[in-house]
Amino acid sequence: MSFTAYTLKHISDRQERLAPGHRMCAGCGSTVGVRAVLRALKPEDRAVITSATSCLEVSSCTYPYTSWEDSFIHTAFENAAATTSGVEAAYIAKKKKGKLDETYKFITFGGDGGTYDIGFQSLSGAMERGTDMVYVCYDNEAYMNTGIQRSSSTPLYADTTTSAVGAKSNGKPQFKKDLTKIMAAHHIPYVAQTTYIGNFKDIHQKAETAIYTEGPAFLNILAPCPRGWRYDESNLTDICKAAVDSCVWPLFEVIDGEWVLNYEPKKKLPVKEYLAMQGRFKHLFKPENEHLIDEIQDGVDCRWEELRSLCGIG
């Protein structure tokens, strides 16, 4: 596969495929991700976008308006990938019968609730069946649309409305599920993990590869939520950078089974600094909770080493 050299300016000249005027919050990571992914579509190609029920869906396609330039379908919370299976099958049927000349790409968006949890079976099924689609998870680490409830993506000790912090609780007692790795275990052609870093080259290239790789592809994007994570809206990309530099959210790809680490910080940022940027971890900074931060650091270190080893490093 060969793509033209990336420059943010050049790529930003492409027509926006998510129109402004939608109702997402300022400082929300999800629409940043959607726009970055859609910029990777060749302007001449068409797409059908599927969205799981989510903040994104209720805020971008509110009858009688839509922000989507492309055709868009939403059916329910837990079935976005299966819905796309049907659209893709219809496309194949039409192509075979000579009823359609244009090229369509199928891109599905879901939050971590619709992807890691309630929509996981539907996603796994569509990937296993080889649906030619890209599933994009915008991972904001909790059910934000219903008001910040814990998901299996919520990190250890985060404060959410269903893993409340109190005298007897330090927040969510479990580690985050490693979904990207689970998707890699489906042995699909392309799996990648990304977020908003620098000039958006990483996310652009991964989205482009995902969209233009034949067969199923999965893209997991860390997409912070200012309401749930409790940060100042202007700090979105700083938080993403800290997530990557602390190895909480490593940037990597699995291309036809080959694990590639895309970025290794010269000096790992202590997880503490990443946590300190977010109100959801505020309780960890009480003196008596220091050991909880150590526990998080140990978990991150362990997973980072595991990833490096999968990527053939160290």
């Binding site: 059908v48 819905t83 049907g86």
Partner: peptide, 28 residues
């Protein structure tokens, strides 16, 4: 038959896929 047969992983996905296909303009 020329039918695209999707052997889904659940009935929930069966109906979801039918909705996707029908919305895409074919008989499902």
């Amino acid at each position: 038959i020329d039918t695209e047969f999707i052997a889904v992983e659940s009935e929930h996905s069966a109906m979801s896929a039918c909705i996707g296909a029908s919305a895409a303009g074919v008989r499902a």
